[in-house]
Amino acid sequence: MMKLRIKFSKHGPMVFIGHLDMMRYFQKAMRRAEVDISYSSGFSPHQIMSFAAPLGVGIASNGEYMDIGVDSLTSSDQIKDALNRVMVEGVTIESVKVLPENAENAMSSVAAAKYTISFREKYRPNFDLFGQINDYLDQECILVTKETKKGTKEIDLKPHIYSFTFDPDKKVVSMLVDASSSGNIKPVFVMEDYYKYCGKSAGEFDFIVTREDTYTNIGTDEMPNFVPLDYVGEDY
């Protein structure tokens, strides 16, 4: 079995298809594209397929990843083209890379994700969004209350925000935040907290969020070096 890492994008109405349905979608797509995907053994075999980081409903993405196992392979491009021929509008296979044998799986490799956030027409911020970003980030700690299944807990956002900037020309916010399984941060959560810091409040539907890419860390915890998840694979 060879392991492949597939990068895809998700746009348009497809953002309303949830994570579990995307998995089902790709399972069927593998059969339509006649990818020689590997199956688990047992009475009801399932495809060897795992996703990097679930994407919330309503969020578009230019950098989603999944790993699959295949029993045979002509070339990365062949699989990419075969899959793209059976995709629906809004989902595009961006790259297919072969992973080294010892590669960590997609989900546990995820360290960070980069998002851009723009504003729905009628919800443009009515204050200087740029003005207080640096002050916000310069706080000693950014304490927020997070609701969990067991109740609420207080966490410090600061070590999980790697960058947070505003481009006044394009009127978009860009942020690189922790997306690891232990410290995943939702971008809208940061926005809501920043609005609160500015004495404003953000509504549920104010933001249009796009995940630009998903990263793994090839540096250290102290000196991170974030690279896209498919950096660790190679063309075949």
Binding site: G12, M14, F16
Partner: peptide, 14 residues
């Protein structure tokens, strides 16, 4: 985003 199953109303299926 408000309704329960948006996927029922967007079309675009295979």
């Amino acid at each position: 985003l408000k309704i329960e199953k948006p996927a029922c109303y967007i079309g675009g299926e295979v």
